[in-house]
Design a protein around this nucleic acid. Structure first.
Lengths: 201, 201
DNA sequence: ACCTGAACACCGTTCAAGT
DNA sequence: ACCTGAACACCGTTCAAGT
C-alpha cells in the first residue's frame, strides 16, 4: 500500500549494506544445505543442532531458512534428484532397446537409493510424504520418457501412468542393502516390467 | 548353580504373593498393549508417556515390559497381523478362482492399511523395519497359500517367492487414502499380478 | 518382584539482544 | 535485515524409594 520505501536498496545488486547482508544470508543458506546433505547421508535423524553447528550458524538461522525439517530435507536432496532426472535422457541415448534403458535406469535408481540411505529413508518416511510428492514431479517427467520409448517399442502397453510406475517401484526403498537385496531388486524390477506388457485394468 | 531357593513360589499358580504379582504384571502388560493399540491408531508418534498414562502405569513399567518403542509397536499390532493371516484361508475357501482370492486378499490388505494409518506408517518407517520383518513371517505363510493356489491354477508362474510378492506390494503403504488412491491401488495390484504370470528372471 | 514417578538428558523451537 | 545463542518446552529413559 505504501508508495514510498527503500526499494532501491532491496534490488541493488551492488555492495550496499542490504546487498552484502543478502549475500551473507545466501551463503548461510547454502552452508546449511551442504551440512544437511553431508549429515543426512549418514543419519537422516541427526539433530538439527548439529547441522547448524557444522554449517557454522545459530539455531535460529537454520529455522529462519527452513521452518520445518521437511523443508531442509527437500532442499538437501533437490540437487541429487535433478541429476537423477537428467540421467533418463542419457540412458535412452545409450541403448537401442528402450526396455534395456528402462531396466538400467531403475537399477541405477536402486543403487542410488542403496548408497544414499539417507535419501531413501527420508523419502520413504511418512513425515516427508508431501515433500517427496513435490520432488518426484520432475522425476516423473524422466520416467515418462522411458515409458513412452517402451510403448513405441511395444514392450509396454499404452495407458500406464508414469506415477503408477514409480509407485510400483516402491519396493526399491525396502530391499536390504545386501547382495541378496540387490538381486531381489533386479528380479522385482523385471517382474514389474513384465506386468506392464498388458494394459492397465 | 544354587540348590536351594524359593522355586516353589515361582511356579505356584495359586494365590501366593508372587502369583498375584505376576498376574498384576500381566494385566499391566495387556493394559499397555491396549493403550498403545488405541493411541497408535490415531498417531503412531504419540508420546509413550501418554500411553503409560492411559494404561494407568508408570513410565518405568512401560519400559520394563517394552524396552524399545519397536517392541511395543510389534506387540500392539501382533493381534491384527495374526487376524489378517487367518483371512487367507477363509478367502481361498470362498472363491473358486485362486486369482480372485489373491486379488481380494490384497485389496483387503490395502483397505486395512488405509484405515489403520498407524499400522501402515509404523510398518513403513525405517525405525521398525526389523519388527516388520519379524511380524511378516506368519503373513508370508498366508501369502504362500494364495500363491500356491494360483500356481496350481496356472495364473502365476512357478518360482515366485511369497516374500518377493509382499515386497512388490510395498506401494500399498504409499497410496493416498482417497478415492483416487483406492483406484490406483486396485490398478497396481492387477498389474503386479500380471507380472507374476511369467516366471521370475 | 514389581511398580511409581521424580529427576535427568537431549532435542526442537523461540525470542531478546546484538551487529 | 539478519544473526546468535541462551532459554524454554517437551519427550525419552533411568533409578531411588515404596509396596
Amino acid at each position: 500500500m505504501s508508495t514510498l520505501g527503500h526499494h532501491r536498496e532491496m534490488s541493488d545488486e551492488g555492495p550496499g549494506t542490504y546487498g552484502t547482508q543478502r549475500k551473507a544470508a545466501a551463503r548461510n543458506r547454502q552452508a546449511i544445505i551442504d551440512a544437511a546433505h553431508e549429515l543426512f547421508a549418514e543419519n537422516p535423524l541427526v539433530p538439527l543442532s548439529e547441522v547448524a553447528r557444522l554449517a557454522g550458524v545459530g539455531a535460529g538461522t537454520l529455522y529462519r531458512h527452513f521452518p520445518t525439517r521437511d523443508d531442509l530435507t527437500l532442499a538437501a536432496y533437490q540437487h541429487d534428484i535433478e541429476r537423477l532426472t537428467a540421467t533418463a535422457d542419457e540412458v535412452l541415448e545409450r541403448h537401442t532397446s528402450a526396455k534395456a534403458a528402462f531396466v538400467e535406469w531403475f537399477e541405477t535408481l536402486a543403487g542410488y537409493i542403496r548408497i544414499k540411505h539417507g535419501l531413501g529413508d527420508a523419502m520413504h518416511s511418512a513425515a516427508v510424504q508431501d515433500v517427496v510428492e513435490a520432488s518426484w514431479e520432475p522425476t516423473a517427467a524422466g520416467v515418462k520418457k522411458l515409458v513412452d520409448a517402451c510403448r513405441a517399442e511395444g514392450t509396454i502397453a499404452a495407458g500406464h501412468d508414469p506415477r503408477d510406475i514409480i509407485m510400483l517401484m516402491s519396493f526399491l526403498w525396502r530391499v536390504a542393502p545386501t547382495d541378496e537385496g540387490v538381486a531381489q531388486g533386479r528380479r522385482l524390477i523385471a517382474t514389474v516390467f513384465n506386468g506392464l506388457e498388458a494394459p492397465p485394468s
